[in-house]
Design a protein around this nucleic acid. Structure first.
Lengths: 204, 204
DNA sequence: TCATTATGGAACATCAATGATCTATTTTGG
DNA sequence: CCAAAATAGATCATTGATGTTCCATAATGA
């Protein structure tokens, strides 16, 4: 069976449409992350398509926003899967995860840039159990006594996302080169949630 | 000379107007923090004033937004001053500061909720040297070797704001009671930026 | 009490983003 | 090369937020 074609994916979108759709979603996420009030015209231009085309794919603004949220969520979800959170020891896994999150920084910045967007995102996370893998990883770490037990695992997760966001933001704004931001996040994060035996240097 | 009345503050606003203005600014900050697209009508309602009145104080939306930014910035600035960042040792001072920031959480959440707002805020910070006191405190801490020297002081400041924000957000959303959020932030922060000799328990 | 000041609400004009429709072109895939 | 699919661009109606004006009331404070 073909690997990229889902068996029962009814009509299946043409390659052209798929590419266009992707262009729109990507451009939208990137633009909206910086300017939540971005006009549909601006988004279309950024995606290098006519405003009409954008409308053909997403009837109204709301459906576009939702689609971008969905898409960003699934991009992150997939990235998380590929990070294999159930392997190794939590520390090593966490490092892989952070690096992975940096790779999808644009989507992450978008999902966290707006309270409303973020709420919607977290909502469908609850239902669909998507980024829950992260929560599970952290809880596992707590259970194994590898993470700080003086604070709730929920809080640790908050810290995790907050630092990732700060790191991506720093890179995005050009305040730090990627590798340095990555190291900084790792360092602040690991020491922050007090990993036992994290004596020195996560480094490169 | 009177303590609360600036000597040359030309016309001086009537008490009533001052109160109304404050009501609007406060309500606006609180509302806009949660919903950046909040309508002027909604803001007026939240402030418990007529939309007309709101317009009387702030001719257009932009001037309102700017005023709210200015106000929130000055509220934070004042709070920071009262935290006396130049006293004590950096650690103790940092703790005071975090607690202080929790007190002005609504304003902080507003200033950081929107990329655009945040940019404007950081812009006038540079010029007016307002929240720079925080940066100075951190740099002092780094200079004294009290904070982690493996990362830039700029990054440490990022971590500081990121964790404060996460804490305020948790409180605001009801995920944590205030005192617990405060302790969590302190703990994660201090261990995160690796304060030497911070063996245990900041606690209550 | 009374003049002043501040307010609320209705009513209206404006405007920009939105979304819908149509047509001419281009691109795709066979 | 050709039919089908996809697109861009122009045009137009709609709509909701905005900003403005006017007037009647209410609060203030001397």
């Amino acid at each position: 069976m073909p690997s990229t074609v889902p068996p029962h994916a009814a009509p299946a979108e043409s390659r052209v449409r798929a590419r266009t759709r992707r262009a729109i979603l990507t451009a939208a996420a990137s633009l909206l992350a910086r300017n939540r009030g971005a006009t549909l015209a601006e988004i279309a231009e950024a995606a290098d398509v006519g405003r009409t085309s954008l409308h053909r794919y997403f009837p109204d603004r709301e459906s576009l926003i939702n689609a971008v949220i969905q898409d960003s969520a699934s991009v992150m979800s997939q990235a998380i899967q590929e990070a294999r959170l159930d392997d190794d020891d939590p520390v090593q896994t966490l490092r892989r995860l952070v690096a992975t999150m940096f790779d999808v920084g644009d989507h992450l910045l978008f999902l966290f840039s707006d309270p409303g967007v973020r709420a919607t995102f977290e909502n469908l996370s609850e239902q669909g159990a998507r980024t829950d893998a992260v929560a599970r990883l952290i809880e596992r770490g707590c259970a194994e006594g590898v993470f700080d037990s003086k604070v709730s695992s929920a809080w640790i997760e908050s810290v995790f996302w907050a630092l990732i966001y700060a790191g991506c933001d720093a890179v995005h704004k050009g305040r730090l080169p990627r590798h340095q931001a990555l190291n900084s996040v790792l360092r602040s994060l690991e020491n922050g949630i007090r990993i036992k035996g994290a004596g020195e240097e996560p480094d490169v």
